[in-house]
């Protein structure tokens, strides 16, 4: 096993454990993250699988395939994050507006 494989395996496990420790813990999340973790570990331990997959999909190398998938994953994560920020912004707006309308005053001459 190469040193990079050790680093990647540790990285994947740390990320998966951290996610469950600090973030959501629903059954669905557990399932999705467990699948992603297993796929990640398989690709790291058996790099030839990615090469074979890459050839099937018409990509030159396995590393390139992983890179493209990472870009897709990154865009998806960005969109999901932006959506969460927008939802948060909507809630803050509603709260602020409700408060502002309750405290509205009419200044007389």
């Amino acid at each position: 096993m190469n040193l990079i494989q050790v680093i990647l395996i540790i990285g994947i496990i740390v990320l998966a454990v951290s996610y469950f420790r600090w973030f959501r813990n629903t059954g669905r999340d557990l399932f999705v993250i467990a699948i992603i973790t297993v796929i990640g570990l398989t690709f790291v331990l058996f790099p030839n699988i990615t090469n074979r997959l890459a050839h099937i999909l018409g990509v030159g190398r396995g590393a390139d395939l992983i890179f493209y998938l990472c870009i897709l994953g990154f865009c998806f994560a960005l969109l999901a994050l932006y959506s969460k920020i927008k939802n948060l912004e909507r809630k803050i707006t509603e709260l602020t507006r409700k408060d502002a309308l309750r405290e509205a005053r009419e200044v007389k001459d």
């Binding site: 803050i92 707006t93 602020t96 507006r97 408060d99 502002a100 309308l101 405290e103 509205a104 005053r105 009419e106 200044v107 007389k108 001459d109």
Partner: peptide
């Protein structure tokens, strides 16, 4: 200083 209705947002939205 003006005879108006004032509504204050506590933060800039």
């Amino acid at each position: 200083h003006f005879p108006i209705t004032i509504i204050n947002h506590s933060i800039n939205l």
